[in-house]
Design a protein around this nucleic acid. Sequence first.
DNA 1: CGTTGGCTTAAAGTTTGCTTAAGATTCGGA
DNA 2: TCCGAATCTTAAGCAAACTTTAAGCCAACG
Lengths: 220, 220
Amino acid sequence: MHILIVEDELGIVQFLKQGLEEEGYLVSTANDGSKGFEMTQNQKFDLILLDWMIPKINGLDLCKAIRVKDQTTPIIFLTAKDTVQETIQGLKAGANDYIKKPFSFEELVERIKIHFRSKKQTETLTLGTITMDLSKHVVLKGGEEIALTQREFELLAYLIQNKAKVCTRNQILRDVWEINFEYDTGVIDVFMNAIRKKLNLKIEEDYIKTIRGVGYIAND
Amino acid sequence: MHILIVEDELGIVQFLKQGLEEEGYLVSTANDGSKGFEMTQNQKFDLILLDWMIPKINGLDLCKAIRVKDQTTPIIFLTAKDTVQETIQGLKAGANDYIKKPFSFEELVERIKIHFRSKKQTETLTLGTITMDLSKHVVLKGGEEIALTQREFELLAYLIQNKAKVCTRNQILRDVWEINFEYDTGVIDVFMNAIRKKLNLKIEEDYIKTIRGVGYIAND
DNA sequence: CGTTGGCTTAAAGTTTGCTTAAGATTCGGA
DNA sequence: TCCGAATCTTAAGCAAACTTTAAGCCAACG
């Protein structure tokens, strides 16, 4: 995940760069608007943090300029405390989110994560000896490929993404089947059965446990 | 964590309420603006979800009205797809965040969590040497896992959540069994017995006391 | 010491989840 | 476009686990 920070205050830049790198992100910086624009045109970033008050080209115009060619990369504005008006303009200009200075670093990270949620698709998930590559749609168990159908794949991915948390039947229906009302015919059971069978889970590797009366839980 | 939902579409309300409750939040609802306003004046919520188009008082005016007395409680707007303009007005009126319909439930939960970050949210309950993790549905006593059934789990959690307060049999029946009329066959006794037995409570660690003629009380 | 309320136990009743198979539905290729 | 295969969904039987009832016993409190 590659983040671009466009900001002129050196202290803030260092603070952000270091913090985000510790979070595992690749971070590039630009200390003025035109430099920032140049960089966005030459390479692809996964997210852009944009200060409002920057030299050469201001944040708002830079945001608009980026949006001419690229409507998808999330842009988060860092706005000064009392410039709600400007924030609003930023949103109009195509920013996805805003965060007011002074902000807590934790909150910023959470905001960033939200915008990465949709990109999570490229991630690989693991559960014990099981590996899933979401982008390639491949499941391996101990290096051997397991053929899963679409729904089976989604269900397994969902459980792993919520590793160590109980997933209720309703939650599963809501998030995997996108059924938003109480309605249980036992589909989930059928799919759990199929997954367990295909993965050939032994007793000593019951990565997916049933919690009677509640739902299911995945755990290494 | 107590969330207020102000929304008139019954389907959405139910969907949100159930989902958020499963996430461990306490949820109250109001189906029009004036009801919503009344509720905010009479009690304190930790977060407010506000639809734009609601009867009696619209979301924008309600937001402004709430902000007269209360500038801190986070307000998240649920806005219709193509009303960016309105979203902006909402932000002006003092909302902290906005989310566009149709939204993914997962994203909503993430947004809510951000606003709760400052407040600590304990997902684990403790009682003496006993620990309960609600999301994992696990009970530990001195590090050792204790297998409880669904009802046993709920009952124990209820007692711990009401630590140091007497829970009458009727309250327990109402809140754990969801029986809202006087009706006692002695089920509670049976479950208390089972819990005490499984937790193997010694005399010197009688975390759960019986109050004869009244009910039960949990205390470290 | 008798009455009341709580504890304990076991058996009956109920629910839940697993499994299987058959009926829909979807999708791709001829 | 139509057909066949793969996938998804429904439904029903069964077994196991859980919940409730009920009855006898015991302890607390007057």
